[in-house]
Simulated scan of single mutants.
Amino acid sequence: MTAPARVVVLAGGVGGSKFVLGVRDALRARGLADTTAALTVVVNTGDDLWLSGVRLQPDVDSITYALAGVNNSEQGWGRAGDTERVNEEIQQWGAGWPWFTLGDLDLGTHLARTGWLREGLTPTQVLERMSARWQLGARLLPMTDAEVDTIVELNDASRMHFQEWWTRHRARLAPARFENPGIDESAPAPGVEAAIAEADIVLLAPSNPVVSIGPILAVPGMSEALRQTSAAVVGVSPIIGGRVVRGMADVCLGAIGVQTSAAAVAAHYGSRADGGVLDAWLIGEEDSAESAAIDDAGIRSVVVPLWMKDAASSAALAEAALSAVSI
């Protein structure tokens, strides 16, 4: 096996973090000792927010920490071994959100980021500085330099930030729609379109299709870049056995009228031949009966084990994605 020279991954959330680690390991297993120049990760920034005066980028931080090996793997977010003294003090002042915990080490990241942003750096430049602290083995790019948060509108027409709906209410409030104010005026971050155009393969991580991959694809020009690239575009299903792997993605899918099935999510992304973004779609062995429907939609189905239980299984899944088409 030879290592492809250029791999781009669109990712967000815990599933995205695990998959990106797997891609890095798969590339190393193919003989690529330094994967930094080969692997570009376009990270969702659609669930970013301002809180207590600092800018939070949950997906950016989760993927950065995971690649750096300092993430809290049990919790799924934040830093390993973190403490919460500052967060407790913030809440004693009645500031912040009592149901949204910020660790002390994590707050250090947010403070550094906010300071750089206030000095005039763009999110792309900030992420470049953050990445320089550790040997990540990947280049990280935000999906856009514009501020694009996610707002959830409920059935009663009330609205709240996605993080409140997701973390405080655990998606128990029925959503009518998800909105990304400002996204129509945004543009892909510098380097994103070029990375996609020059890629040998583009991978869609098994992240939430609505609030992780969805905002990335909604940035004007992003889907078109995927349709125009000469690289194959391969996605990995976040649905196994008709169920979501983690979180409440099924609630999100229901809000946009998409069934919780591997075939339905593939159809949601669509075939590149018909104006969508996918060439191939990896599904679990539990969903092999859906292969024919996916193939009929113009997307090549590939049945593989999808569970990312550890580093080895994550790397195996990534290798399957890299091998799904000829590169």
Rank of each mutant, 00 (worst) to 15 (best):
T2E: 13
A3Y: 01
V7H: 00
V9A: 11
A11Y: 00
A11S: 02
A11M: 01
G13N: 05
V14P: 06
G15C: 02
S17R: 11
K18M: 08
F19V: 07
V20E: 02
G22T: 03
G22W: 04
D25P: 00
L27E: 10
R28K: 13
R28I: 07
D34T: 04
V43R: 02
G53P: 07
G53V: 04
R55Y: 13
R55E: 11
L56V: 15
D61Y: 01
I63K: 09
Y65R: 03
V70S: 03
V70C: 00
V70N: 02
N72A: 14
N72F: 02
G76T: 12
R79A: 07
D82Y: 09
Q92Y: 00
G94D: 06
A95E: 11
G96V: 08
G96Q: 06
F100G: 07
G103C: 13
D104H: 12
D104L: 08
D106K: 08
L107M: 15
R113H: 13
R118Q: 15
G120M: 06
L121W: 09
L127Q: 11
E128M: 02
S131D: 09
A132T: 14
W134P: 00
A138I: 04
L140H: 02
T144N: 08
T144G: 07
E147G: 04
V148R: 04
V148S: 07
T150M: 08
N155E: 12
N155C: 01
N155W: 02
A157T: 15
S158C: 04
M160I: 08
Q163V: 06
R168N: 07
H169G: 03
R170E: 11
G182M: 09
E185L: 13
E185S: 15
P190D: 14
A194T: 13
E198G: 03
E198A: 13
A199C: 03
I201H: 06
A205I: 04
S207Y: 03
N208I: 05
V211M: 01
S212G: 11
I216N: 12
I216K: 13
G221E: 07
G221H: 10
E224S: 10
L226W: 09
T229R: 03
A232F: 10
V233N: 05
V233Y: 06
V234Y: 05
I239P: 03
I240D: 06
R243K: 15
M248K: 10
D250L: 00
C252W: 00
C252L: 01
G254N: 11
G254D: 15
G254E: 12
I256Q: 05
T260Y: 02
S261T: 10
A263Q: 10
A266M: 03
A267V: 04
A267K: 09
Y269L: 08
S271K: 07
A273G: 14
D274V: 06
D274H: 14
V277R: 11
W281K: 11
W281G: 11
W281D: 12
L282W: 09
I283N: 02
G284C: 12
E285N: 13
E286R: 15
S288I: 01
I294P: 07
D296Q: 15
D296S: 14
A297C: 11
S301M: 05
S301N: 02
V302K: 04
P305H: 08
P305D: 13
K309S: 14
A311V: 12
A312H: 11
A321T: 03
A321N: 05
A324L: 13
V325F: 00
V325Y: 01
V325L: 09
